[in-house]
Amino acid sequence: MEVKGVVSTFMATVDVIRQAIDLGANFIITHEPTWFSGADDTEWLSDDPVYLEKKKLIKEHQIAIWRFHDHMHMDVDDGIYRGFDEELDWGKYRVNDGDLGWFGAVYELPETTLEELAHFFQKELDMKVVQLVGDPKMPVKRVSALVGGGSLGLGQENLPMRHMHAENIDVVICGDITEWTLSAYVRDAAQLGMKKGMLVLGHERSEEWGMKHLPAWLKSITEDLPVTFVDAEEPFTYIV
């Protein structure tokens, strides 16, 4: 198959595939699964109408989809965090100097508040809603980003809490959450009068930026081949 154009995205949703078709691109680089499970297993979907219609769309337009996940995270500076830093211009604030410095990304920010930080993400990442735990007026300086599933602990559900303690984190910026682990820990800390907080961006909003900045990283490989970022966007509609 001759590649005519490339699209990079967080997830190859139906809308992303349609935008790729409109762009004349036939190769999609996605960070997350196309078929609704971590391993992209399709055996259970053999007679599912959603799967069959999406597969038909892909086949009719001769689209190839390649998942770029583990290798991207295993890059020397993690391609997803690299894009996160580039999008927010936060690379200059990175410190990662503790025993758990390999886990997530730690930043020393100019002093702000939890509420101001939430508004910052709303503006910079085009978010309608940012969930938070803690006192909105609390002072914030030392923060950690645990993008995507990192805030679930990567198989160790107590790792985010150990990380907050070991790195003396004021506010943790999360992708996914489980309400009875990290958010419960931060809420108890706040209710005990400790200056601890949490912001929830969601998996997509916390990781999309690695894929947005991927085309520049790919330039040495793709040369003159057009590579376009397509935002998969948040999966939710908010009623406020």
Rank of each mutant, 00 (worst) to 15 (best):
S46N: 13
P215G: 11
M164I: 15
E60A: 08
I65H: 05
N96R: 00
A232E: 03
D85L: 00
G202N: 00
L218Y: 02
I65T: 00
M1N: 13
L146E: 03
E207W: 04
D77G: 14
V95N: 06
P139T: 05
K59A: 14
N26Q: 06
H69I: 01
D188P: 15
L125V: 07
K195P: 01
I169N: 01
D231F: 13
F36A: 13
F68S: 12
Y51M: 08
W217Y: 15
T228I: 04
A25M: 08
F36P: 14
R187L: 14
K195R: 14
V129I: 09
W35Y: 11
E2H: 14
F229L: 03
A39R: 05
T181I: 06
L52C: 09
D224G: 08
T9Q: 12
A190K: 08
E157D: 11
L182M: 09
I169K: 05
I177D: 03
V7L: 11
E223G: 01
A190M: 04
S37L: 12
K4E: 07
V50H: 14
S183L: 12
T13M: 01
V172I: 11
N168C: 06
E157K: 10
E60H: 09
S46W: 04
D40G: 00
L114V: 10
A39Y: 06
V240Q: 07
Q62V: 14
H163W: 00
F27W: 11
Y93C: 13
Q156D: 14
E116Q: 12
D224F: 12
L201V: 00
K212A: 03
N26L: 02
G98M: 05
T34K: 05
Y51W: 12
L114N: 06
E111F: 12
K92P: 02
R162T: 01
E32Q: 14
D231V: 02
L199Q: 02
V133Y: 02
L109A: 06
K137Q: 13
E87Q: 12
F84I: 15
E233D: 05
V200T: 09
S8L: 09
V76I: 03
I80D: 03
D78W: 02
F68Q: 09
S8W: 03
G101T: 06
G155F: 09
F84V: 15
R82V: 15
V106G: 08
L88I: 06
G210P: 02
V95A: 00
T42Y: 00
I28V: 15
A118L: 01
I63M: 04
K54M: 10
H163C: 06
P136E: 12
I177K: 06
W209T: 03
P139R: 09
E167Q: 11
F120V: 04
Q191E: 15
M161T: 08
A189N: 03
R18N: 10
Q191I: 15
V14G: 04
G83R: 13
